[in-house]
Amino acid sequence: MKNTRTIEITVGIFVALGMAALLMLAMKVANLSQFTEQDGYEVRAYFDNVGGLQTRSAVKMGGVTIGRVTAIGFDQSRFQAVVTMSIDQAYNHIPADTAANIYTAGLLGEQYIGLEAGGEEVELKPGDELTMTQSAMVLEKALQEFLYNKTVKSEPK
């Protein structure tokens, strides 16, 4: 058995190493440091169809992530999906008539909300609703419409 001092030092190093690994998992892998939901303001938007959108999906403007989706629910009075998103406090000069669209990254990739700035001078406030929205593209629907158009066109022959 080695002497007590060496043992204590190596145990100290071991515990520090374990803690460092946990910290790395929390910071680098789970990305605790970059974006926490608290430091943003919340905005709502109604969509006919949210497709594969999920909580924590990105909210992007000009391709830059400026926030995250915090909640997705269904409004029974409007029969629409209501998406609550939290936008980073740093981006507080967004026009109130900004349009929200649901886009897909790549053909089958994950879905995100893309915001397109409007022209109004009034700025978006916490709790506001984005009125101009466009739903997610559902692949089956698009295919259905395409096939329907095909058959309608080919019928007169």
Binding site: L25, A26, K28
Partner: peptide, 19 residues
């Protein structure tokens, strides 16, 4: 890294799993 950081959650994955 970004795909990992977007989807891995601190409580759900790190604390539940490893700890």
């Amino acid at each position: 890294w970004s795909q990992m950081q977007a989807k891995v959650l601190l409580m759900e994955d790190v604390v539940n799993g490893v700890v």
